[in-house]
């Protein structure tokens, strides 16, 4: 009612009634079905709540320190390990393994997805074996990999690579095959070459799938890392935890878990950031 009156008054005598500092904004509001506007750092809320729950449970004695160390003990342990350099050293070697495995896995997965997605012969040759690999747990391959490559870095990086390339392949391949046929027709009518078609239509069209695969791959790389470092290793975060298990040092084990968790969360955040920048043409609920 008041809005209608205000509008009529400004319409009749606009010069005698200048707009107020805060112009009235009365509007019908429909129910908003999307998740709403993005808020910065909102992603920290879930992990922080988890941390708070842990702290409260430890402080009230609800959580026995023999079962799970208190957060402050873990922080203190981290301080000690950083002081004598063990944490950085092990973290560096772990990060190097994960990074190398991730790099090779991404390259192998993306190349295989392109070969298999763009040619029938490639699909006939590649897709089957990848599906077979997908069905075999990474852990089950380790004995064979140790036999073939020994227990040095090659075996560790290869195990991670084998775990990483599968999600990259699957998601990129699915996105490639999902590219709208109408764009293929368009590419033909504007006379794109095969290389131009791949560069201008196929790759950008498959990019959302690639990024989804990358998110699985990044966390997968850390998971594979734990496996190889705990089974046969003399360095790395996993080795540090395995050693702590022998001596019953719960605080170091929990610290290792926390480090893995933080690394996983951080790397996922980085991938999502790059994804948002690279796919800014998309208009989705994610915003």
């Amino acid at each position: 009612m008041s809005a209608a009156t205000a509008v009529r008054r400004t319409a009749v005598a606009p010069h005698q009634d200048p707009a107020p500092a805060h112009p009235k904004d009365v509007r019908p509001t429909g129910r908003r079905l999307g998740p709403g506007r993005r808020r910065r750092l909102a992603w920290l809320l879930g992990p922080s709540a988890l941390l708070l729950l842990w702290t409260v449970a430890s402080a009230t004695g609800l959580l026995d320190p023999r079962i799970l160390s208190e957060p402050w003990t873990v922080v203190a342990t981290a301080g000690e390990l950083i002081a004598d350099g063990r944490l950085q050293e092990n973290l560096a070697i772990s990060a190097q393994r994960a990074g190398l495995g991730l790099f090779f896995g991404i390259v192998v997965g993306a190349v295989l997805a392109l070969l298999s997605g763009l040619s029938r012969a490639g699909e006939a040759l590649i897709d089957g074996p990848v599906q077979i690999k997908r069905a075999i747990p990474g852990l089950a391959l380790i004995p064979l990999l140790i036999l073939w490559f020994g227990i040095d870095e090659t075996m560790k990086v290869l195990t991670i690579t084998l775990g990483v390339f599968v999600p990259i392949y699957l998601q990129t391949h699915a996105a490639l095959r999902g590219i709208d046929l109408r764009y293929v027709e368009l590419a033909q009518t504007v006379g794109l070459s095969r290389a131009g078609f791949i560069r201008r239509v196929v790759l950008p069209g498959a990019l959302p799938g690639f990024f989804l695969g990358l998110r699985f791959a990044v966390t997968g790389a850390w998971v594979s890392l734990v496996v190889v470092e705990q089974i046969n290793s003399t360095s790395g975060i996993g080795y540090m935890m395995e050693l702590a298990r022998t001596y019953g040092q719960t605080n170091i084990i929990v610290l290792g878990l926390a480090v893995y968790g933080i690394l996983g969360l951080l790397s996922d955040g980085i991938v999502r950031f790059i994804e948002r920048k690279a796919l800014s043409w998309q208009r989705t609920l994610a915003g």
Binding site: L186, G191, L192, R200, W281
Partner: peptide, 14 residues
């Protein structure tokens, strides 16, 4: 092409 700018769409294949 939704992933290309207006200009990129016009130059497609040129």
């Amino acid at each position: 092409l939704p992933w290309d700018s207006v200009l990129g769409n016009v130059t497609l294949g040129l």
